[in-house]
Write a protein that binds this DNA or RNA. Structure first.
Lengths: 149, 149
DNA sequence: CCAATATCAGCGGGACTGATATGC
DNA sequence: CGCATATCAGTCCCGCTGATATTG
C-alpha cells in the first residue's frame, strides 16, 4: 500500500518492545505486563481491582488473574476495603516496595533503549504521535475508556 | 522521568493497536497475529517455516503452532518441499486466497485508524521513528550485561 | 557425524465471555 | 430488591525454551 505497511512497523515495534521488557524484567523476576501493575501501585498506592482494570485498559477478570500471579511472587497483597466490603484493595508488600529502585532503573533503561537513536526533538515527537495514534484507535473502537492518569 | 514515561505510551499504543486488529479481524474469523501470516504468504507465496519465523520476527516453534491453528481454519496448508525433505512449505489454500480482498481492506482500515489524526508528514515520521526505535531495541537485546558465567 | 529443519511438550502470560457469591 | 464488585471457570490466543525426529 501507499504507506508501506505501517501496521507491520507497529507490530514489529510492539513485539521488540515487549521482548526487551521481558529481558530486562526477567532479572527481577517479573514477566512483561506485571511491571505495569507494580508501577501503577507505586504511583497510586492501594487500588481496587476495578480501578486497576480501568487504568490498565483491561477487563476486571484479567486483573484478578494478574494480581493472583504477582501475589504468588509476594510483591503485592490483597486487603479488604474498610469502607466498602465489596472492594478488594491491591497494595504493594514490603518486598514490592523494596523492588522499586530495581524496577525503576530497568524501566528507565527500557525507555533509553527505545529512544537511543533519536534526537531530543524526535523523542518528544514519538511520544506525541504514539499518544495521538492510540487516541484515534480508541475512538474508532467501541471503547471510550481513557482515564487521565 | 523527563520523558513522562514513554514506555507507558508504547504499551498503551500497542495494546490499542492489537485490540483494534482483533476487532477488525474477528469479522473474517482471524485472530490478531494470524493476519500477518496470511499477508506474508500473499506477498511471498509458499514459504518455509523457518523463513516465516524470520519474516515474522518470532521463533520457529511459534510459527509451527500458528500455522497449525490457521490450518485448522482451512486458510493455509502444509506441503513438503520437493527440493529438500527437511523443509515444510506453508501455502495459502483457495479459501485463503479468497479471503485476500477482505483482509486487505481491513488491514488498510486498521492503518487508517492509526493515522487518522495525523498529517501526511506525521505519518511518514511515525513510521520512520517506529522502525528506528525497533532497530535500537533489537540492538540492545542480545548483549545486555557482561555474562557472569 | 554434524548441522539444519521442523515438531512436540510444557511453561508463563494476555484477554475475553459467562456464570456465580457477596456486599451496598 | 437491583446494582456493583470481585472471583471462578472455561476458552481462545501469543511467545518462549528445551527436548526429540528427520533429513542433507
Amino acid at each position: 500500500v501507499a504507506e508501506q505497511d505501517l501496521n507491520r512497523s507497529v507490530i514489529a515495534f510492539a513485539r521488540a518492545h515487549r521482548a526487551a521488557a521481558a529481558q530486562l524484567l526477567a532479572e527481577v523476576g517479573l514477566h512483561p505486563g506485571q511491571e505495569v501493575l507494580v508501577l501503577t501501585l507505586v504511583e497510586r498506592g492501594p487500588t481496587s481491582v476495578s480501578q486497576l482494570a480501568g487504568l490498565l485498559g483491561v477487563e476486571v477478570p484479567t486483573v484478578t488473574k494478574m494480581v493472583r500471579r504477582v501475589e504468588a511472587v509476594g510483591l503485592v497483597e490483597r486487603r479488604p476495603d474498610p469502607a466498602d466490603g465489596r472492594v478488594v484493595l491491591v497494595a504493594l508488600t514490603p518486598a514490592g516496595e523494596a523492588l522499586r529502585p530495581e524496577l525503576d532503573e530497568r524501566w528507565a533503561r527500557l525507555g533509553d533503549w527505545v529512544v537511543d537513536d533519536l534526537s531530543e526533538e524526535e523523542r518528544t515527537t514519538l511520544r506525541e504521535l504514539l499518544d495521538r495514534a492510540a487516541g484515534s484507535l480508541h475512538r474508532h473502537m467501541g471503547a471510550p475508556d481513557a482515564p487521565t492518569c
